[in-house]
Design a protein around this nucleic acid. Structure first.
Length: 279
DNA sequence: CAACCCACCTGACTGC
DNA sequence: TGCAGTCAGGTGGGTT
């Protein structure tokens, strides 16, 4: 999936297309993605004007006006993206793309959700009920908001036997860090991803917190990492791939110490790290 | 509880 | 050209 930087890139790209525009129609090519789509509730967006495009964790929040202030909650899964088509005001809507599952029509543009693997999701909330939404309620700390620092990581890692990488990827604790940026952050902090989280010292936690923030901010500044089927909302590629230090670099040379980058697999997911300079 | 493993789904790529 | 195997950004649910 898009991890936090990719979702943030999509959020920023979608914002100018959505905010201030009124939904003419919301349509569905199917009734479910990862979970059933609440089609009836989402129908209440018709006629509403978008007031904001926000993000919580890896969820996009499309916020609308009206007494109940409805919100479309969008998750991109592993392969989801938004595509925006501009068109003349009277033009007939274009045919559905392959793997396009829902769309919002506005007067002069069309926002389409495309997700080949269908691990994504579309939900409904209201402003008042957002915090209690079952997808959002269990989520932990935003890594780029106040409260995320070495002391926080030290606190949540005490007595934890899981790996440092698993800790960073546990959305109940810290949100937004996925498989790419977990490896990258561990490398930057010189911490081995498989090390038990409970073994981290204060100094390690300080370094890790700074690394996570640095990596995420740099990736956002580059428009995310573009691989395979992920592209931003404007189909523009992300450029962070060229800045990756370990991810998908197994067998290559560590740019910090010259040792060979290794790849290990846990629960079917690849981890990349350097045995030369990560402890 | 924590830790682990798996399923969900499609497409791209590799090697035979 | 085809086919089998592997891998890919996430996350909830089930089992130890």
């Amino acid at each position: 999936m898009p991890e936090l930087p990719e979702v943030e890139t999509v959020r920023a790209g979608a914002e100018p297309h959505l905010v201030g525009r009124r939904v003419a129609e919301i349509e569905f090519a199917r009734a479910d993605l990862r979970w059933p789509i609440p089609i009836d509730e989402l129908g209440r967006l018709r006629g509403r004007t978008c007031t904001a495009v926000a993000r919580r964790s890896k969820y996009l929040l499309l916020c609308f006006d009206g007494p109940e202030r409805p919100i479309a909650v969008v998750h991109l899964g592993m392969s989801g993206r938004l595509a925006v088509d501009l068109h003349a005001r009277r033009a007939a809507p274009p045919p559905w793309k392959k793997h396009e599952h829902w769309r919002m029509r506005f007067q002069d543009r069309l926002v389409r959700y495309v997700d080949p693997r269908r691990f994504g999701a579309l939900g409904f909330a209201t402003a008042a009920g957002l915090a209690a939404h079952p997808w959002l309620a269990p989520l932990g700390q935003e890594p780029l908001e106040p409260g995320f620092d070495g002391a926080f990581l030290h606190r949540i890692s005490r007595k934890k036997k899981c790996s440092v990488k698993s800790l960073l990827m546990d959305a109940r604790l810290v949100v937004g860090v996925g498989n790419i940026y977990a490896s990258e952050s561990c490398w930057l902090a010189r911490v081995r991803p498989r090390r038990a989280a409970g073994s981290l010292r204060v100094a390690d936690c300080d370094a890790l917190a700074a690394a996570v923030q640095h990596v995420l901010r740099a990736a956002i500044a580059s428009g995310g990492t573009s691989f395979r089927d992920f592209v931003g909302v404007d189909e523009g590629a992300g450029y962070f791939a060229r800045e990756l230090q370990v991810y998908e670099r197994s067998g290559e040379t560590c740019r910090r110490c010259g040792a060979t980058i290794r790849r290990t697999v846990d629960v079917g997911r690849s981890t990349y790290w350097c045995a030369g300079c990560q402890r």
